[in-house]
Design a protein around this nucleic acid. Structure first.
Ligand SMILES: [Mn+2]
Ligand SMILES: [Mn+2]
Ligand SMILES: [Zn+2]
Ligand SMILES: [Zn+2]
Lengths: 135, 135
DNA sequence: ACGCTTATTTGCAAGCCTTGCAGGTTAGCA
DNA sequence: TGCTAACCTGCAAGGCTTGCAAATAAGCGT
């Protein structure tokens, strides 16, 4: 995801307006590696801007995802997680605390046993226990 | 997942009853490689047994999953998919038709960039276009 | 600075999938 | 055949996300 300043420019160029709510979310997301849910972002945003609505959080997240600035990831935990890192990488989720960490794989695993399937992307999710929860 | 006959025995031994509804689901699931959702199973079950309730389908699916006879997989498509194949394998989902196919990988991809994470399982989902939809 | 137009924000209702609950029903066993 | 615990069904409700409409405000031209 680009910087708040660059995003503001991009939004205006797309005919979208740059509101205080959106700017706040730009800041909360930029460089954020915690893979927060909409709910968590709403809580954070509410601290800085009491009264902001959950609906607006979802709206802005969807706008950013549509622009390719953000990816929405479903780990099957009930709510979607959002990731401003849209470069190719994979994830590891802790079974204990639910934290999601970025990981990289040496090379994409080779798929066997299925002919004629045109692979566009391979999503890998490691499940286990993170360093913090192990101690 | 074991055969309907074996499952019936296992259910009784666990103090669970073997009802016509459960037997029907045993049959619908045994050897099923289509990764159906509860909804799809409910539709199939309703054909053979009009009046069966969606609640009962969910109940039986949960029972089987709890017994380790079935796995529930969330591909982020809204509803869970159920798989009577509980041996280690991976999946490929078609972006066009939503079909899920079983695949195998040569060897588990090596995780980089995260120290101290104890990996219990690695889930891989290939996204792309299946042979049928390509033509 | 001012007013206009159009996008945005909000609050609430509703949609989708799944589970909780309660009352009538039935499997399993003596 | 009868008892009792487990089950089935229908419906309500819970969690996450989106649709909708009225009030609000950003961006732009003057
Ligand atoms: Mn990430
Ligand atoms: Mn499978
Ligand atoms: Zn942890
Ligand atoms: Zn297909």
């Amino acid at each position: 995801m680009r910087s708040p300043a660059e995003l503001s420019q991009a939004f205006r160029q797309s005919g979208l307006k740059v509101t205080p709510q959106r700017q706040l979310l730009f800041r909360l997301l930029h460089g954020n590696t915690s893979h927060p849910s909409a709910d968590v972002l709403f809580a954070l945003a509410s601290q800085a801007m009491p009264g902001i609505s959950l609906r607006t959080v979802y709206q802005t997240l969807n706008d950013l995802a549509l622009m390719g600035e953000l990816q929405s990831i479903d780990f099957g935990t009930g709510s979607a997680r959002f990731d401003p890192n849209v470069t190719e990488h994979q994830h590891a989720m802790c079974n204990e605390c639910g934290a999601v960490h970025d990981v990289f794989v040496a090379d994409e695993p080779k798929m066997l046993g299925l002919d004629g399937f045109d692979v566009h992307a391979a999503q890998i999710v490691y499940h286990g226990v993170c360093a913090g929860c192990a101690s």
